[in-house]
């Protein structure tokens, strides 16, 4: 009888732990539009358009160019245009051949603080 009670407690604790871990383990789908705020505010990246409309398969970017976790790349110090021009990060595709060049049409990606604020309101 005592053993059974202990077992019940054990199961309860286990369920508690699993329910805590599960949401973190579960694969979360990336948001349609990812907004970068570092190193400058703010850059909009349309993940949905890139993955679905343009037909780019996941393995082209992940995990070699960008890690799976969104915005993780903001932590690296060389996430800037200087690296892009060397073919890193966005520059891997946006070289003027595969994707549009990065020295023109700045506001196609750069939505600025104003863009960030309007997105936040929505």
């Amino acid at each position: 009888m005592k053993n059974l009670k202990n077992l019940n407690v054990l199961i309860f604790v286990l369920i508690c732990i699993i329910s805590l871990i599960l949401p973190n383990v579960e694969v979360t789908k990336a948001e349609d539009i990812i907004i970068y705020t570092k190193p400058v505010k703010a850059v909009s990246f349309n993940h949905k358009a890139h993955s679905e409309d343009y037909g780019i398969s996941c393995n082209i970017c992940h995990d070699k160019i960008f890690q799976m976790e969104a915005l993780n790349v903001e932590k690296s110090n060389d996430f800037n245009h200087r690296s892009f021009s060397k073919g890193k990060y966005c520059g891997a595709c946006h070289d003027g051949k595969k994707g549009f060049a990065m020295d023109k049409q700045c506001t196609k990606c750069h939505i600025g603080v104003k863009g960030l604020n309007t997105k936040a309101k929505k």
Binding site: V40, K41, A42, K104, H110, G112, V113, G115
Partner: peptide, 9 residues
Amino acid sequence: QNRCIDCEL
């Protein structure tokens, strides 16, 4: 003018 990205720094 075309270089501004409104980072507001």
